[in-house]
């Protein structure tokens, strides 16, 4: 139960999308039943608005919520890659610092290089 609640909390946008989609379908069905129950246009129009238009709006809200959830996933993936990149950068930076320190120490300890050359 705790796991389910945690999942619902983390995936609130997908849960909202599913709820909106179900509500939209129910609204469309109710609108259809209400509209088909009368032959007068003036009595059908309120069902068209409360059932049809509202159902379409709820389905649109479900789509928006679901795509928002996908975008949030994409954003989390970006953050994960960026964090990996930063760790790699820090690692290379420390390696490079260590190398430069060692190279400077080596050159200072070696003193002036010999003048004789065997190449070019």
């Amino acid at each position: 139960m705790g796991e389910l609640l945690k999942y619902l909390r983390v995936q609130w946008d997908r849960v909202g999308a599913v709820v909106c989609a179900i509500a939209g379908i129910v609204a469309l069905i109710v609108g259809y039943v209400g509209t088909s129950g009368t032959e007068y246009i003036a009595e059908q129009i309120p069902y068209l608005v409360s059932g049809g238009v509202t159902g379409v709006m709820l389905l649109a809200a479900a789509a928006v919520l679901w795509i928002s959830a996908d975008l949030r996933d994409e954003w989390r993936e970006l953050a994960s890659q960026g964090e990996t990149l930063r760790r790699e950068q820090e690692e290379r930076r420390s390696e490079l610092r260590a190398y430069i320190d060692a190279e400077v120490s080596r050159r200072v300890a070696a003193g002036p290089a010999p003048a004789r050359s065997t190449d070019g």
């Binding site: 930076r93 490079l96 610092r97 430069i100 190279e103 400077v104 050159r107 200072v108 070696a110 003193g111 002036p112 290089a113 010999p114 003048a115 050359s117």
Partner: peptide, 14 residues
């Protein structure tokens, strides 16, 4: 210049 003991340039450091 070859043979001179020079520290690495500033620009090379991270």
């Amino acid at each position: 210049t070859a043979g001179r003991t020079a520290p690495p340039r500033e620009a090379e450091a991270p």
